[in-house]
Design a protein around this nucleic acid. Structure first.
Lengths: 364, 364
DNA sequence: CGCTCTTGCACAATCGATGGTGCAATTAGA
DNA sequence: TCTAATTGCACCATCGATTGTGCAAGAGCG
């Protein structure tokens, strides 16, 4: 594959070719040259030489010496939900805007794995870490603290570091109210027509359940025990929960709240196994947004967390260097059924293409 | 945030505490100690000391000296489609299994941005790069070649480096055949009942169009001109294409092929604007898999590329250090409508949770 | 006992960039 | 004209790990 595989130019190469010392070259190229009283003329000479030779600094060397790597870490549980992949996408843009290289890793919702992958980031001297939806935020916190890595929690709060999270309670209230109101259009609702599936014993789930109950009580006016079922963030377990409900009641609840898109996939599996049936009469709310989910054959209300703002606030917290951990709430957005929101994809240049017919048919 | 923010231990710390020299410590900890004839006893002493002090090597220093960073790069166009986020997820696992730290970046389908982000990876001396769906694979190739970074193309081939891609033509044939056969169940089809939307002038799209035409000709027996419409990988442009078709014909084609899930989002937008209508009679094939897309209110056949195998082969190619660029085809999978496949989420520990009722109702 | 081998490790250069310090040449000030 | 201040830059130690080389102590052999 070698074309002109010259070794990358270093400040020493530039030093020789420019006649200046390596430290002068370094100062010019990292912007500290005014402070070091390098003449503008010398600076220009070196800069243009650098461009000519396509010099780029060796970040390992820079990091080793200055103990700032230019890496910004993001710890996710998993990538492949729209929520977390949008977060990765947004994080990438925001980190890059700040001159950092984003490094996204996933902890697989396993406390030990979380710590391991963060250790590996620490070994690369990351400058900061965003902890998004960690199973054990405080365990991760300790790893960061030992290494002196600034960090914030996103989406799920931790006790030991500042957190930026969605307003789960309000979001859940709005979502619950929306599905109940929609269901009421087709007749009165009993308390046992309204359920919640999914989630686990974490802060987000607890808050959502509180919001769910509060909206339900407010609108229907009464409630029942055991109207929420925790399944973890697992499609398989969620499918099982639906299956069991179905076995007991001969149908799904008229209207229900699903804790996350991961749990929503459990509903898909359930549907896949009950292929003949229509499910046209259920009304679903999901605390997460997925464009395809929004167009399923029944009304689906969704909540879209404001990822961009959460990350912005996160960066601000890191810059601010606060002492006492604080929690910042970000309002999420209620998305009505059959809504295809624009997203990061719409910012791409590809959109400027002209629509053209390029195909042509063939006759056999 | 400071608890016991001791600076991280170095080989010199271990050297002093163990009485051995730094080079001995280094050799013990990086596994080369047998080659350097360090006694087993010394090795054990140092190893246990290292564990005690929670020593982890400074990767920047290691990289600087050995010019191997332990970083594996993956260049994606975007994150937030299920295809690319699954790829990120799978890549992470595979890279980590090989002792590498995965660094995933996105090039936003912009040739210049692609080169910029790869330059930034090169500045960190990545050991290898996977180029997945780059707009300009050969431009990226040149950046890698200059820096001596081994690389492979995934999913979209390049001329200058080896590539592992889906068998787009066969996949498209299978997909086209599936939707046509499904449509034939409800009556005969004319050639202008079968269209293709999406894609652009890249290898994948061209191959898919060939496969589409070949299956169409084979089953329907005749064809027409202008039965494919290129829209780029843009939801907005795709929506526009559907809108225009709808304006001209008063309906959508009875059965059509959508080039990617990104284009599929264009169909969602179209549907969102035509809210009253049912679209229950269309039959769609999409060259990409999305679990929610599979359950839309009309039959959706999907193609799932075999990401795991593509990446495995990619790693093998890198190890093999071939000289002449080669292209490896991987067979994708046809997924019938209403199918929720298992994915990386199912491998998580979270699935072992027990399903329990945790909620309790409240009476106002 | 003298010699060669082997064992077990230490020394020191090195990767590329950074930043404190020192010093010659120039300019300013008296 | 002589000293003091300023300008413009070079020198060199340093970050932490890797690796080629050298060398003393002990083992093996005749």
């Amino acid at each position: 594959m070698g074309e002109k595989e010259q070794k990358k130019a270093t400040i020493y190469d530039l030093s020789i070719k420019s006649g200046a010392s390596a430290s002068t070259v370094s100062a010019v190229l990292n912007g500290t040259w005014r402070k070091r009283r390098i003449s503008e003329e010398t600076a220009k000479r070196i800069t243009s030489l650098a461009e000519e030779l396509k010099y780029t600094a060796n970040q390992q060397a820079r990091a080793l010496r200055s103990s700032r790597s230019g890496l910004a870490g993001l710890l996710l549980p998993v990538y492949d939900t729209r929520f977390f992949s949008s977060m990765a996408q947004t994080f990438e843009v925001q980190a890059r805007n700040r001159g950092l290289l984003p490094v996204v890793v996933s902890g697989q919702r396993d406390p030990e794995e979380e710590r391991r992958v963060v250790e590996s980031l620490v070994a690369y001297s990351i400058d900061s870490l965003f902890i998004a939806g960690a199973t054990d935020p405080d365990g991760v916190h300790r790893v960061c603290a030992r290494a002196g890595v600034p960090h914030v929690n996103i989406d799920l709060p931790g006790a030991l570091a500042s957190s930026v999270i969605s307003d789960n309670r309000q979001g859940a209230r709005a979502l619950t109210a929306a599905i109940i109101r929609h269901a009421l259009q087709t007749g009165p609702l009993n308390p046992d027509d309204v359920y919640l599936f999914g989630g686990r014993d974490d802060h987000a789930s607890r808050e959502r359940i509180i919001g769910f109950h509060s909206a339900k009580a407010e609108i229907i006016g009464s409630s029942i025990a055991n109207d929420t079922e925790s399944t973890g963030y697992s499609p398989g377990m969620t499918a099982l929960a639906f299956e069991r409900f179905y076995d007991r009641h001969g149908r799904l609840p008229r209207c229900f709240f699903i804790n996350s898109s991961i749990n929503f996939e459990g509903l898909l599996r359930f549907m896949g196994k009950h292929d003949g049936e229509a499910f046209g009469d259920i009304i679903v709310g999901c605390f997460d947004y997925d464009p395809f989910g929004s167009f399923l054959p029944f009304p689906v209300y969704m909540i879209r967390p404001n990822i961009g703002e959460m990350l912005e606030k996160g960066f601000e917290l890191l810059d601010a260097e606060e002492t006492a951990p604080q929690i910042i709430l970000i309002e999420p957005q209620l998305v009505p059924p059959r809504t295809a929101l624009e997203g990061p994809l719409d910012a791409l240049k590809d959109n400027n293409n002209v629509v053209t017919f390029i195909g042509s048919g063939k006759s056999p």
